[in-house]
């Protein structure tokens, strides 16, 4: 558990960080360090340079602007968990946060760090997909905004270019009559998700489904939107039977992970069961 030697850079502005990133090859961005540092201690990652962005204060905020909630990439899990703005306007995030790690992890780990690491069993990606977030990334040459579903490309692989830093997560404020829920089955050793299902659903007064987004983590090499589930619900009048039927589609079309903790078959089953439960709970909250 002793890492290899590395150079440690501590920029205080985003521009400094971006310029450091573009001038040093084999550099990694260090935010909360809860994924990268363990990998380094195991020498599974041995970057030559660490660029610590935790001192960049303008990456740390939760605020409302133009119908969106903007979250700085350096905002910690705990800050999200305890945000009154999010609790009121986007409760799926405050519900998801306490499932991450433990108190110490939540006080250090960041939303941006978790998304950029793209662990296939991390909690945030499911919620970020379900709230329909956009992800803003910057390089020294400019910035671009990606949809969450375009951001996650494979296991621990995102659309981030080597010279880019994830800077902001933008979440559309859900309309009235929206309910959400996060359901998670923990892998007992690590606490990571065997399966995590995040749901955000909007019904009209006739209980017709206006919008629904289902994000699933832990099941596949990357988090994904369960389009099959969503399609079965959109435009339909919601009842328990329909929710259960739709949930059956949760694992369709994915290549499920399999390990000593859960087979592909069991993971798929859990995804279906907990999609059903998350849908039921989300609807019950409307």
């Amino acid at each position: 558990m002793i890492p290899a030697a590395f150079e440690y850079l501590v920029p205080t502005t985003l521009d400094e960080a971006l310029s450091a990133l573009s001038t040093h090859t084999d550099a990694k961005i260090l935010a909360g360090g809860h994924s990268l540092i363990p990998a380094m201690k195991l020498r599974l990652a041995s970057p030559k340079y660490l660029i610590d962005i935790s001192r960049i204060s303008d990456l740390n905020y939760v605020r409302e602007s133009g119908g969106q909630i903007l979250i700085g990439a350096g905002t910690t899990h705990y800050q999200i968990e305890s945000s009154t703005l999010l609790k009121e306007k986007c409760p799926l995030l405050t519900e998801t946060a306490p499932y991450i790690g433990d108190v110490q992890v939540r006080n250090r780990g960041t939303l941006g760090g978790s998304l950029a690491h793209a662990d296939p069993a991390a909690d945030w990606p499911a919620a970020i997909l379900a709230v329909g977030a956009e992800i803003n990334v910057r390089s020294s040459r400019g910035e671009r905004t990606l949809k969450a579903e375009d951001f996650f490309v494979d296991m621990m692989t995102t659309a981030l270019q080597p010279n880019e830093i994830l800077t902001e997560i933008r979440i559309p404020i859900p309309p009235q009559r929206t309910g959400s829920a996060y359901e998670k089955v923990k892998q007992p050793a690590s606490g990571f998700a065997l399966v995590g299902v995040a749901v955000q659903i909007t019904l009209d007064t006739n209980r017709t489904c206006q919008r629904v987004q289902v994000g699933i983590t832990g099941l596949a090499p990357k988090p994904f939107r369960a389009i099959g589930v969503e399609n079965m619900l959109k435009g339909k009048v919601i009842n328990d039977q329909l929710l259960a039927q739709a949930a059956e589609k949760a694992a369709d079309g994915v290549d499920p992970l399999s390990d000593i903790h859960a087979s592909a078959e069991y993971r798929s089953h859990l995804a279906r069961v907990h999609t059903k439960r998350a849908l039921q709970r989300a609807v019950s909250r409307i």
Binding site: R43, L44, P120, D154, P221, S258, D259
Partner: peptide, 17 residues
């Protein structure tokens, strides 16, 4: 080695990838 002992959950998917 290390990968086998700490990364079992990802090995199969990594190989596919």
């Amino acid at each position: 080695g290390t990968i086998a002992s700490v990364g079992q959950r990802m090995i199969q998917a990594s190989a596919k990838m």
